[in-house]
Every structure is written in C-alpha cells, then in structure tokens.
C-alpha cells in the first residue's frame, strides 16, 4: 500500500479488473460512434437492468468458484424457486411468505447438493449436473408445464422488480447492495477468508484446523440461496413463472465469473471482477442488437469472448512465471 504512486499504478494496471474496465470503455467508445442510440439514458438503463438480477447469481457463483466448487444447476434452481413461490401465491399464500418459501426451496437444494459433495464425496460437476435435471423436472411438475400467470401480485411486491427510487430501478439497488456487501465480506470477513484458504489448498486448509466441509457446504448453499433471491426478483419483474426460464443461464453466469478472474481451480476471484464480467457480456449482447446482428449469433460470440478472456489471462500468467 505504502509503496508510492508508480507501484500502485503498476499494480492497478496488472489487475484483472483494470483490463476489463479498459475493454468495456473501448467498446463504449466504439459503440457511441457506431450507434446514436448507444449513449442514450434509456439504453444505459436497459443494459444495467439486463444484468442486475443475473448479477446476483454471478456473485454467488464467484464465491463458490473461489471455494473450489461449481454449480451448473443455477438456471433450473431459479426456475424452481419461481415456480414454487408462484404456485404458493396462487394457492392463496401472501407473496412475501411465498417468496421466502421459494428461496428456502433453493437453499434446501443447495443443502442437498452440499451433502452429496461433502459427505458422499461426489464431484460438484456431477452433483450439480444432476440437479440441473432434477430442479428443472420439479419445475415442470409444479407448473404442469405451463407458465404461471401472476398478474394478481400486489403492487408492493411488484415494486421489487419494477419500481424505482429517484429514477434508479429498485432491481439495480438490490443488486448494488448485494455486490457491495459481498465484495466487502470477501475482502475483509474472516468467514470468507476461509473460502479462499479452502479453494487455494484444501489439504493445507484442513491442516490449518479449518472445517473444510462446512466452508464448502456454506459456499454451495449461499450460491443456491442467492440464485433463489434472483428468481424472486425475476418473478416480481415479469409477473410470471415460466417452466423454461433460465435454461442455459449457467453458461452466462460461469463465463462472467471466469472472465472476471475467478479460477476453476479455486482460490482466486473477486466480486468486482465478476460484475465487470457480466457487464461486459451484457454490453456485448446489447451492442450486437444495436448493430442489427442476428440474435442467433449471440451465444457463439459470448463463448468466443469467454475463450479469448481465459486465453489472454493464461498467457499473461504463464509469462509472468
């Protein structure tokens, strides 16, 4: 910290986040020339809105990746959360209690997954792949395969997904609160320091008296819970729960976290990086729309960006060594 300006600057430039900010700004500059609509307030707000809710899931995924885990089931768990909460509301439960139970369902799935990962000893990939199927299947059972129309949700509940404070969408506020808290905790809280230890070297963590299984389970459940929270926000936003919601979401979410510097080997990653990652992906999606690129190209281009980001990072890291 106290090494003087050039050192600080050098470190800043070397930081993953800095590179991402440069790329994002470059795209913004190019796009502002390419499209007159790009720099409008409406477009900026649309971009911000588009990634705010998914961004909450990205935060959870980043923490899970740092602990050395991964969760492929987020899209399905989100759909299940919406279906459970929506169905309970249609049965006559008030929307708040229904939402809490929906999020509890997501957390419960996290709990079961953590049982299989830490107690049975299966790999995250397989367990969450199984729950990608199970949670989606349960969603279809709950909804009977048809979207639940929730237009009767009270205005106070719809405010979560649709309202705004002084022109700032409430969704964005929730997102920023989650981000700021998570970023602070990850950098400063003892509890989350353990997540880095476990992800960096599980055995060494165990030999440092850290209860590794608890940390791993906590990260899984936290990721599922945040996914549930995001599901409730989406439900409020759309006033509906559709059985096919969130299909393929894991690609976006994991890509964002990895572009932002989280390692699949665990031990590294930051919330700020992950948020810049999801911002970059959303920015690209929006830019492609403004440039009239057919929508079918989007996934291919996103995959390409992921590959490019990881390749550059790999090359930079191996050269430094």
């Amino acid at each position: 910290m106290e090494r003087g300006m050039p050192g600080v600057l050098k470190r800043l430039v070397r930081m993953r986040e800095f590179g991402l900010i440069v790329i994002i700004l470059t795209i913004c500059v190019i796009m502002s020339f390419a499209s007159p609509y790009f720099l409008t307030e409406g477009n900026m707000r649309a971009i911000l809105l588009s990634f705010s809710t998914e961004g909450i899931v990205v935060v959870g995924m980043t923490i899970l990746l740092i602990s050395g885990g991964i969760d492929l089931s987020v899209g399905s768990v989100m759909a299940l959360t919406m279906a459970v909460a929506g169905k309970l509301f249609l049965f006559g439960l008030d929307p708040w209690s229904a939402s809490v139970l929906g999020i509890a369902t997501a957390a419960f799935i996290g709990l079961i997954m953590s049982y299989f990962v830490t107690r049975v000893g299966l790999h995250y990939f397989i367990v969450s792949l199984a729950f990608l199927g199970i949670a989606r299947g349960l969603t279809l059972v709950v909804t009977q395969g048809t979207p639940l129309s929730l237009f009767t949700l009270p205005p106070a509940f719809k405010f979560i997904g649709q309202g705004s404070f002084y022109g700032i969408p409430f969704v964005v506020i929730v997102f920023l609160v989650v981000v700021i808290i998570a970023d602070f905790l990850l950098r400063r809280a003892t509890m989350f320091r353990r997540v880095y230890y476990v992800g960096s070297n599980q055995k060494a963590a165990e030999y440092s008296g850290i209860r590794v299984d608890r940390v791993k389970a906590g990260a899984i459940i936290l990721c599922s819970t945040l996914t549930g929270l995001a599901g409730i926000i989406f439900m409020s936003k759309f006033g509906a729960a559709t059985p096919q919601f969130g299909v393929g979401m894991e690609l976006n979410v994991i890509a964002a976290a990895v572009i932002g510097g989280a390692s699949l080997n665990g031990g590294s990653g930051s919330v700020l990086g992950a948020i810049l990652g999801i911002a970059l992906l959303s920015l690209v999606t929006s830019s492609l729309q403004l440039l009239d690129v057919p929508v079918f190209w989007q996934d291919a281009i996103k995959g390409g960006i992921l590959l490019a980001a990881v390749t550059i990072d790999h090359l930079v890291h191996t050269r430094r060594k």
Partner: peptide
C-alpha cells in the same frame, strides 16, 4: 502439526 508434504498440504501457494 507440520505436514510432510509442504506444497500439497503445508502452504497455500497462491496466497
């Protein structure tokens, strides 16, 4: 206790 496998069990290399 100090483990015999320094890199594998003793230290967190990237921290």
């Amino acid at each position: 206790y100090l483990s015999e496998d320094r890199k594998g069990e003793g230290v967190f290399l990237d921290l």
